[in-house]
Design a protein around this nucleic acid. Structure first.
Length: 606
RNA sequence: GCCUCGGUAGCUCAGUUGGAUAGAGCAACGGCCUUCUAAGCCGUAGGUCAUGGGUUCGAGCCCCGUCCGGGGUACCA
């Protein structure tokens, strides 16, 4: 797939060509055209050439056949651009051949720059705050959270690489009825069980009681219905839910015993989350807690009410009328004065903009909340925050299992910890079967298995367009061949192996001979190397780790063909060998950089 | 109902401002390790790009209709 990347305005040679094409049209056909009308793209592999100008748009000026027009332009460009050394015409396509020396200089540039493709941020650079992860503290993280965390982390890396200052933030949903449910279940049936006494990870332990609550609650409902109560009444009056509500009320009244239990159980969960976050390799610069920000949000809503921005119903509930914006009415405070999801998000946003001078706020949250963020933005704007309209919801698709959606309470989830362990297990097994890594110290081998396993998982998730829903089949998704993370890591390891051998043989890289005639395959590779810069930029503009993943795969696939067909160290022509080494080293660097943007580590051998 | 996103090979996914014969991986089949790592490379097979119209020199991509699917539309988060 040679054509999935935009090159326009990215490659200097491309700019020159556009310019000269305009000039040619002007001189040959006495017509002025806008720059946008010139289409320059990478020549498809089946055809000879490097860059292609599409001449169809010029036909109405040239009043000649496509072939003749292309000939005219080709001759003009050949004479007026040094870097072009040949051209051919196929129908309305003018294929231009760029000289070896141009490609060599481009490679040289990429090779010499240790931060190739990355822009540095300064104190003046835009500050972007990215919210991601946002867990509830009543259950462990699952596959859905994994996609969120990986996307969020990668997005931050990509934004940094594009010269932004980035603050990674997390909002922890640590209060509310769902938290009280697991607390209540633990009180009722826990017998004082702790992570220490049970040997269970804290988040899993709390999750167990959340599930238990639901089970008991459902039993109670069934019992009540059997004794003649209506279903709705039963749901409202089952002893467990009544008790949970009472617990929430106590929590809001700061009952010491309740607050104590809440702190204890949340503490268990945080410890568990820390382990999972660390395993995933994600982190945060600043963490906000809903238990703190919902108060700020409530105050803002009250202010809005006083200023007539919102209105109150007779039952005391507070609403926003969004019909003027083409939306509906939205509740902001319940009739009992307690706050809803929206309330805390208003407070969190305000707090963040107080804490930081934010140029861009990005929320990494699933697309099921598109409406929520549309409303949030409008509400903040109505409340007078000039940044309200500028919030950006990075909306990603859901992860589906072969049998449908994941539901925590019904146990149809793929647990994050389990999944990672399983992948490490498979990585270890595969590696041992292949007999790789023999002679490596145990802890180094273990670290390699971990990197490969995480590489497989992260790449699998990040390579798909964030906007789209994706399917995760636990049996089939654990793959280490083909378009996968390990395949890319493997290519990196191969290059490192070559470089080690080169060093052993005392081969030292020399400056490139700029007069060298570059062979077709090397030129193909150099062309892909150059694209890295524009891909990073494009990924930053479109907020898409998938672009990075697909590019790196494309590069690596091409390199493996080269590796198979040609020898690097055994090449007899010193200059050619030198070029191949420089190319391999540059490609390794890009693999490392690209993988870093995805939050994936590379391995020296595998 | 209304709003919104999607439908590309058996499966999972690419496919940039509309451009040449729609591409990968997996699965299937057949080749390639005395040669820098075979977690690799090469080949075969696999498509009415959901569907019907339209715009255009040119449509997987743009416009309209239809069918199918996801999500939203809660005093849940």
């Amino acid at each position: 797939m040679p054509r999935n990347f935009k090159i326009q305005d990215k490659m200097t040679i491309d700019l020159i060509i556009r310019d000269k094409v305009l000039e040619a049209v002007e001189k040959l056909y006495e017509q002025k055209m806008p720059v946008e009308s010139v289409q320059v793209q990478i020549t498809r592999k089946e055809f000879e050439g490097d860059l292609t100008v599409i001449v169809f748009p010029f036909l109405r000026f040239s009043k000649k056949s496509p072939e003749q027009t292309a000939e005219d332009l080709g001759n003009y460009l050949l004479q007026n651009i040094n870097e072009i050394d040949k051209f051919n015409v196929v129908k309305g396509f003018l294929n231009l051949g760029i000289s070896s020396s141009y490609w060599l200089s481009v490679l040289n540039n990429a090779y010499a720059n240790p931060d190739f493709g990355f822009k540095k941020a300064s104190d003046e650079s835009p500050l972007v705050m990215v919210e991601y992860s946002s867990p509830n503290t009543n259950k462990p993280l699952h596959l859905g959270h994994i996609r969120n965390n990986l996307l969020g982390y990668s997005l931050c890396e990509i934004l940094k690489a594009n010269g932004n200052r980035v603050v990674k933030t997390n909002i922890v949903n640590d209060r509310g009825i769902h938290i009280c449910k697991s607390m209540l279940a633990w009180q009722q049936w826990g017998n004082g069980e702790t992570p220490e006494s049970s040997g269970m990870k804290g988040d899993h332990l709390v999750g167990k009681y959340y599930v238990l609550f639901d089970k008991e609650y459902k039993k109670e409902i069934a019992g009540l219905v059997a004794s003649g109560m209506g279903n709705d009444d039963a749901e409202q009056n089952a002893p467990s839910i009544v008790a949970a509500r009472e617990l929430l009320r106590k929590w809001e009244n700061k009952d010491p015993e309740t607050i104590g239990l809440w702190k204890t159980m949340n503490g268990w969960v945080y410890k568990g989350f820390d382990v999972t976050y660390k395993k995933m390799g994600v982190d945060f610069d600043k963490i906000y807690y809903e238990s703190e920000t919902y108060i700020i949000g409530r105050d803002e809503v009250m202010r809005g009410l006083n200023e007539g921005i919102f209105y109150q119903k007779e039952d005391g509930s507070v609403w926003a009328d969004l019909t003027a914006d083409g939306l509906d009415h939205k509740i902001l405070l319940r009739s009992d004065g307690t706050s809803v999801y929206m309330t805390q998000d208003i407070g969190t946003a305000k707090e963040r903009f107080n804490d930081y001078t934010i140029d861009k706020m990005i929320y990494v949250v699933g697309n099921e909340q598109n409406y929520h963020f549309q409303v949030l933005s409008i509400l903040l704007d109505k409340l007078g925050f000039e940044w309200g309209k500028g919030l950006h919801h990075f909306s990603y698709g859901m992860v589906e299992l072969p049998n449908g959606k994941m539901k925590s309470r019904e146990g149809t989830v793929v647990d994050a910890d389990d999944l990672i362990e399983e992948m490490v297990h498979v990585a270890r097994k595969t590696s041992e079967e292949l007999g790789k890594l023999e002679g490596l110290p145990e802890h180094e081998a273990e670290e390699t298995f971990r990197l490969i396993a995480l590489g497989a998982l992260k790449y699998f998730i990040l390579k798909v367009d964030p906007k789209k829903n994706m399917l995760f089949n636990p049996e089939e998704s654990i793959d280490f061949n083909g378009n996968t993370g390990p395949f890319i890591q493997y290519t990196y390891a191969r290059i490192q192996s070559v470089l080690r051998k080169a060093a052993e043989q005392g081969i030292v890289l020399q400056p490139l001979d700029m007069n060298l005639d570059v062979a077709a395959k090397e030129q193909e590779l150099i062309k892909k190397v150059v694209l890295f810069e524009s891909v990073v930029e494009e990924a930053g503009n479109l907020y898409s780790p998938a672009l990075i993943a697909n590019y790196v795969y494309d590069l690596v696939k091409e390199f493996n063909q080269f590796y198979h067909d040609f020898s690097i160290l055994k090449e007899e022509n010193d200059q050619v060998r030198n070029l191949r080494l420089a190319l391999a080293e540059t490609i390794a660097k890009i693999i490392r950089s690209g993988m870093k943007l995805l939050g994936i580590g590379v391995v020296e051998r595998m």
